[in-house]
Simulated assay, not measured.
Amino acid sequence: MISDTIKKRLNKDRPMISITVRMPEDVVESMKALAPLRGFSGYQALLKSYVGEGLRRDEAQFSSSREARFIAALKKLGVPDSVIEEAERDVV
C-alpha cells in the first residue's frame, strides 16, 4: 500500500510555494549547463529534481516505510522518476 505522503506527491495540482535560495553564481551556471544534458527545461527544474532526489533518499533512510525504502532502492538502481511515478499511479 502506498503511503499518504507519496499519494500527495503524485498529485500534480498540489499547492506550491515560492522560495528564495542564495547560491554561488558558479553553481547556478553549472546547473544551467547541465540541465539540458539531463533533459530538463532549465536550471530551476534541475534544482527541484536534486532537492526531490535528496528528500526521497533522506525520507527513505529515516522512515520505516517499506514504500519509501523500495523507491530509494529503485532510484539507486537508476530507475527514472517518471517510471517510478507511473508505476505508483498504476498501483493506486
Rank of each mutant, 00 (worst) to 15 (best):
M1C: 11
M1D: 12
M1F: 13
I2C: 00
I2N: 02
T5R: 13
T5Y: 15
I6W: 01
K7P: 04
R9P: 03
L10C: 00
N11H: 09
N11I: 05
K12S: 11
K12Y: 11
D13G: 00
R14T: 01
P15W: 03
M16Q: 12
M16D: 12
V21D: 00
V21Q: 08
R22W: 07
M23F: 13
P24D: 15
P24V: 11
E25Q: 15
D26K: 15
D26C: 07
V27L: 12
E29A: 08
M31D: 06
M31H: 07
K32T: 07
K32F: 06
A33S: 09
L34R: 05
R38V: 02
R38F: 01
R38P: 02
G39M: 02
F40W: 05
F40M: 01
G42L: 04
G42T: 01
G42I: 00
Q44P: 05
Q44I: 10
Q44R: 14
A45M: 05
A45S: 09
K48Y: 14
K48W: 14
G54M: 03
G54K: 02
R56G: 04
E59G: 14
F62P: 01
F62H: 11
S63M: 02
S65I: 05
S65Q: 05
S65G: 02
S65P: 01
R69T: 01
F70Y: 14
F70A: 01
I71A: 00
I71R: 01
I71P: 03
L74N: 03
L74H: 00
G78P: 03
V79W: 05
D81Q: 07
V83S: 10
V83A: 08
E85S: 05
E85N: 07
E85I: 06
A87G: 05
A87S: 03
A87M: 08
E88V: 06
E88M: 14
D90L: 08
D90T: 02
V91I: 15
V92I: 14
